[in-house]
Computed example of a mutant assay.
Amino acid sequence: MSYLENGWFHEIHHYMDLGISLALEIDEVLYQEKSEYQDIQVYRSKKFGNVLVLDGLIQCTELDEFTYQEMIANLPLYSHPNPKKVLVIGGGDGGVLREVTKHPLVEEVVLCELDEKVIEVSKRFLPKMAMGFSHPKVKICIKDGIKYLEQTDNQFDIIINDCTDPVGPGLGLYSKKFYEQMQKVLKEDGILCSQGESQWFDHELLKDMLDFCKTIFPDVAYAYAPMPTYLGGQIGFILCSKNKDVKLGEPIRYLSEGELDAYELSYYNSDIHKSAFCLPQFSKRRLGL
């Protein structure tokens, strides 16, 4: 649940007997509307810039969005030897597109987004993220990701599943059937990277997902990164490879300082890539890794 009160936006979650809340101080409500699929709000906060909220859950803020976007894009891109064709499922804010199109080997990016209104709102209120939509490598498909996978004849080197939390329109993106469909659309050496919730609070869901991913893919791994404005202060990533010889925790190409500057990367680098897969012992036990 979430609510706005006395100039503060509150996002509240309950996990079994544990309750946790995140609050951001708000200057102004910039946008509020219910689309065909979900409630969409944009707030201007005092310290975190503009904030996109879907169905009461913070999706991104201008201050810290780069961490999530750079990691979910570059972990798979720099694990693949030649990522020419990329599918992004979700990602209506444009941040993942922005990062994927920086990659020199990528030739085509297809973005499949269910809710066109999210794209419109992001272009208006999150222009530094939505710049990805204008890139010539990008093709936009307004469609349910599940239906797209069922109907497409395309094959991809990389799939980035930039899904929302498992509520509302995002619920089906956490099923075994959906991961089986993504596996079929990947090329023989393809890599999948999905938003992976919190190792602190979602370990039961993640354990189930990682277990069924291991029955579909020969190599499965979990990584994470800090995110100040996500509940729990971090976000995870599920990575799956159809090529058992790929080491998901080891970048296949290392970026120089010049490349890091040229690609305007603020969080991701080759050392971060490796360290993101170093899990605390409690997570290894909980997740079966």
Rank of each mutant, 00 (worst) to 15 (best):
T164D: 13
N82S: 10
R98G: 13
P83S: 04
I216M: 05
K147E: 14
E264A: 11
V246C: 04
L126Q: 04
Y268K: 14
H10C: 00
L30D: 00
T67R: 15
L171C: 01
G258F: 02
G232M: 07
Q195W: 09
A23I: 08
C112D: 00
C112M: 08
K137M: 08
N6R: 09
E70G: 10
G91R: 02
N50L: 07
H14N: 11
F9Y: 14
D189W: 09
G232K: 03
F282N: 14
F9L: 08
T61R: 09
E25A: 06
V220W: 10
D165W: 02
G288P: 06
Y78M: 11
Q151D: 12
K46W: 09
E70M: 03
L279C: 04
K139M: 01
Y222L: 07
K184Y: 07
L231I: 15
F217A: 06
P218Y: 10
Y43T: 06
S35R: 03
S198T: 10
F125Q: 11
I216H: 06
F66G: 07
G91V: 05
P228N: 05
K284H: 13
K85M: 00
P136F: 02
Y15A: 00
Y68K: 03
K147S: 11
K147M: 06
M227T: 12
K85C: 06
R253C: 10
Y3N: 10
C193P: 07
G170M: 13
I26L: 00
R253W: 09
R98M: 13
C278Y: 15
I159E: 00
E99H: 07
E99K: 06
E116S: 01
P251M: 08
Y15M: 00
P104N: 04
